[in-house]
Design a protein around this nucleic acid. Structure first.
Length: 878
RNA sequence: GGGCUCUUAGCUCAGUUGGUUAGAGCGUCUGCUUGACGUGCAGAAGGUCAAAGGUUCGAAUCCUUUAGAGCCCACCA
């Protein structure tokens, strides 16, 4: 036992006093380092590596608390738990950040060149890249810090390159001149998934194009007037009677004065706009398709920053796309060719990172082939793995989203015109142009030039689940990992691709269970965002309430698959609970100063209250394990919460006080030792959720050795034989009597300090229950007899076969008592009438299971008896 | 246009395979310095389970439709 003097321990729990202390202790003792150990079952969580550009958000808090809960629980349950932390180089995000950072100092990326720029990136990474990971330590995460990984570590880098080379050699990676989503801010291609569509109020411009050799016009509608400079056709639906006679003719394109054909294509919707479409094959995805179908010229009118190039008339060259738009529209108006302008709501694709409208743009890029006929592809095995349940999603409904995406997947554009990232391992022969692709550069490197591009970030993080393990031996032991905890927003970016990578490179699933977290919103239900300023700084919250309180609150509020409405003040919930536990611990510790803790006596001198709490503990453990097995973390915490607060504190602690304050030292020892042992089990159950306070109390409750920790102690096992229904029934009976008396006291406004006398008419109350009733209901004299006569001026309650009378001579207000009784009578009558309705229904009696009918009958009987008694009591009162 | 999720007490949410009087936290009201805790204790009030219809002896729970909220996907200029 610790030597602390507990009367001096603060009444209120102060997390700041304990959290840093224990984190350092865990860290210094490397309690969470894992090595291959074939005598133990591995349990692995690969952390979703935060971007090195990121800041800690409430989303991280939820996500990492969940992972910590899983990993701590499995560790205590005897698994070789291994939670691998790390960070993602975040190619485009970091490059943007560093570029801006340098620009502020007047340094231009292009001017300093690739190598110099990369030095700045690494410097930046060293300085800021570990911030989130460091901040997470405040949360108490039990990561294996010796295994921290970065997606551009040397060995990880090699792994990414090797994956590229392998896929290239298998023909699954190819190079092509294609239309891609172009981010003009970053001057790079991006993948379909990096495009965010925003609804904007735009315009629809109607332009008249003159049909060559006639006075006729054909009117086309467009949301992007400037692209007309690249038009190479006008298309109509082949069945459109209005335009049939024009098919095959030409129009003269205004401004550029180019003659372009009018052609027929099924793609065109007769009903929309004018039924005639301008075709710009180089700047629109659909037009690109049409251009291919009709072998149209592709005229690219933009530079890589979305300014116009020399393919447009001189006076429109080298200007921003929106500037050109204005000028084109003005020119049409001037020419009398602007038919009309309509307001139009449209969706515009924005670059996720650059936050500018993307441009469909033709360029040479690297693609990864996703699906192939015959199923020898990346997608098919990944679909199967989820279909046949080898990988499970929680909540399950995300599987539909996954399947839908996988079944409609398009080839993945993996090249980025950036410098920060994994450089594509392809060299082009300076003379022949031949492609050399390998993990090592060509021997005669002087004859080659390497591809300038780097890979999409996700083309490195998709290997995370296995690339975090460096040796064959480790991969054999730790792979597949067990649980992935991540947001549903990266189901396509990351989860799906990791499954593809795992199935392809490791020939096995990357993880067994995927837990999709909730989205944290503010109290009004809005998404947390920097611009709204509604996102609390988690570190501030931790400072104010403590990490345990924050963890508890977030989990308590986050049911599986539901959004969470969070506001800082909700952490009071967790803080109050921490304080409650703290004080329960204080209570035990204070008693330890006068009472000897003796493990020999742990199972001695048990009464029904002890049997009851032990039964409740085991039942709680059973329910807890079931909830955790089903990934119902939110449910699990509520189960523990209720056990600790309602069962242990509200009832058990109150019940042991009389014995603790008695005069039999051996009984006192037995009771306290048992109470501590149950409390320790409760602390262990709670530890994955609130690691700091549970460690502090666990360390105080007994003498521990250096390096000991509740976090590596054995998780309590369920002992079903100790689940004792009869003790629970007996306890319920006693609780009901106590509650009934408390109810009378409350409603009659009797001060808690005022003791009352009570009479119980019953033959089922046991002698040993009397003390508990007297103590907890604050009864002075308790008279129990089956033949008791009620005193005139007394308040009454009826439950089961028990009638309770509280003589309140001089205190009782008969009207209040009458109302109380009448209310109760009313309630019973309502219940009885609903039961009678059921039982008088012959179909119910004949169709419902016998036990259900029997239950209803018993209810009816009990209630009727109670009603009769209540009515008599009311009668006597008058 | 397709898909997913949600609608239960003033607020935020539980409610397992249909079967006690639909629960919890916060908030509200009443009382309380009861020798762990006022970040607490005891008691109370508060719900026609979004609406309609159906299946069933029985529906918050299953089915259909409707209304509303949110999210995701999709090439309508």
């Amino acid at each position: 036992m610790s030597e602390t003097n507990f009367s001096q321990v603060p009444k209120a729990y102060n997390p700041a006093d304990v959290e840093d202390k224990w984190y350092k202790y865990w860290y210094d003792h490397e309690l969470y380092h894992s090595e291959v150990d074939h005598s133990k079952q591995p349990y692995v969580i690969p952390i979703p590596p935060p971007n090195i550009t990121g800041i800690l958000t409430m989303g991280h808090i939820l996500n990492n608390t969940l992972q910590d809960i899983f990993i701590r629980l499995k560790r205590m349950q005897g698994c070789n738990a291994c939670w691998v932390p790390g960070t993602d180089h975040a190619s485009i995000a970091t490059e943007t950040k560093v570029t801006n950072f340098l620009a502020e100092k007047g340094i231009k990326k292009k001017e300093i060149g690739r190598d110099e720029f990369l030095k700045h990136c690494w410097q930046w990474k060293e300085q800021y890249g570990g911030i989130i990971i460091q901040q997470l330590k405040k949360l108490g995460v039990s990561c294996d810090w010796r295994r921290e990984r970065f997606t551009m570590d040397d060995d990880y880098y090699r792994e990414v390159i090797k994956a590229f080379v392998d896929l290239y050699k298998e023909g699954k990676i190819y190079r092509g001149y294609r239309m891609v989503n172009w981010d003009p801010a970053n001057k790079s291609a991006i993948s379909d998934e990096e495009v965010i569509y925003k609804t904007v109020n735009g315009k629809l411009w109607y332009f008249k194009y003159t049909v060559a050799g006639s006075n006729e016009f054909i009117i086309v509608a467009t949301t992007r007037p400037e692209t007309m400079l690249g038009d190479t056709a006008v298309a109509v639906n082949p069945d459109d009677e209005r335009y049939k006679h024009l098919i095959g003719k030409k129009v003269k394109l205004p401004i550029v004065e180019r003659e372009i054909p009018i052609l027929a294509d099924e793609y065109v919707d007769k009903e929309f706009g004018t039924g005639a479409v301008k075709v710009t094959p180089a700047h629109d995805v659909n037009d690109y398709e049409m251009g291919m179908r009709h072998k149209l010229p592709f005229i690219n009118i933009f530079n890589d920053d979305a300014t116009t190039n020399e393919n447009v008339p001189d006076w429109l060259q080298h200007q921003d796309r929106y500037e050109v738009r204005k000028k084109v529209v003005a020119k049409f108006e001037e020419l009398g060719l602007l038919h009309k302008i309509e307001d139009y709501q449209t969706k515009i694709g924005y670059s996720e990172r650059g936050n500018v409208p993307i441009e469909p743009y033709l360029s040479e890029q690297w693609f990864m082939k996703m699906s192939a006929s015959g199923g020898d592809d990346l997608v098919t095995p990944a679909i199967k793995a989820v279909q046949d349940g080898r990988i499970k999603f929680y909540p399950k409904h995300w599987e539909k989203t996954y399947f839908h995406w996988m079944e409609n997947i398009k080839d993945w554009c993996i090249s980025r015109q950036l410098w920060w990232g994994h450089r594509i391992p392809v060299w082009y022969h300076k003379q022949t142009g031949n492609i050399y692709c390998d993990v090592n550069p060509p021997k005669d490197i002087e004859n080659y030039k390497q591809d300038e591009d780097v890979l999409d970030t996700w083309a490195s993080s998709w290997l995370w689940a296995h690339a975090i393990f460096r040796t064959e031996e480790e991969r054999k032991y730790y792979y597949p990992t067990n649980t992935l905890v991540t947001g549903p927003d990266i189901i396509f970016f990351w989860v799906a691709r990791m499954i593809m990578a795992g199935m392809h490179f490791m020939k096995d699933i990357p993880f067994r269970d995927v837990y999709f977290t909730s989205i944290i919103r503010d109290a009004q239900g809005r998404k947390m965002s920097k611009s709204l300023g509604n996102s609390p700084d988690p570190l501030e919250v931790i400072k104010e309430y403590g990490a345990d309180a924050l963890r508890f609150t977030v989990i308590y509020l986050a049911p599986l698959g539901q959004d969470v409405l969070f506001s800082t003040d909700k952490c009071e919930l967790g803080r109050n609970f921490a304080n409650k536990i703290w004080n329960a611990g204080r209570f035990l510790l204070m008693n330890c100063e006068n009472i000897k803790v003796d493990k020999e006596l742990k199972d001695s001198y048990k009464d029904f209250a002890d049997e009851w709490i032990i039964s409740r503990l085991n039942k709680t453990l059973l329910q807890f394990n079931k909830a955790m097995d089903d990934f119902e973390v939110n449910n699990a915490i509520k189960i523990v919460y209720s056990f600790i607060w309602n069962d242990y504190c509200d009832w058990y602690v109150e019940m042991i006080k009389s014995r603790l304050y008695g005069d039999n030292d051996e009984v006192k020892s037995a009771v306290l030792t048992r109470a501590i042992s149950i409390f320790e089990d409760a602390l262990k159950m709670l530890h994955p959720f609130m690691p700091f306070i549970t460690e502090e109390l666990w360390q105080l409750l007994d003498k521990r050795n250096e390096g000991d920790s509740i976090s590596v102690s054995e998780f309590p096992k369920v002992r079903e034989s100790l689940i004792n229904e009869s003790s629970e029934l007996e306890m319920d009976f006693v609780k009901d009597i106590i509650t009934a008396i408390r109810n009378i006291r409350g409603e009659m406004n009797i001060a808690p300090s005022k003791k009352v006398n009570a009479m119980i008419k019953s033959s089922s109350v046991k002698d040993y229950q009397i003390d508990y009733i007297k103590k907890l209901a604050k009864v002075e004299e308790l008279n129990i007899d089956a033949n008791i006569q009620k005193l005139k001026a007394s308040a009454s309650a009826v439950l089961r076969d028990v009638e309770i009378f509280i003589p309140l001579e001089g205190l009782i207000d008969l009207d209040v008592e009458r109302q109380r009784l009448q209310k109760e009578i009313q309630r019973l009558e309502n219940s009885i009438s609903s039961v009678e309705k059921k039982l008088s229904n012959e179909k119910f009696v004949s169709n419902a299971p016998a036990e259900v009918v029997e239950k209803e009958r018993a209810k009816q009987k009990d209630w009727q008896e109670n009603l009769k008694k209540l009515k008599e009591i009311l009668e006597n009162l008058n």
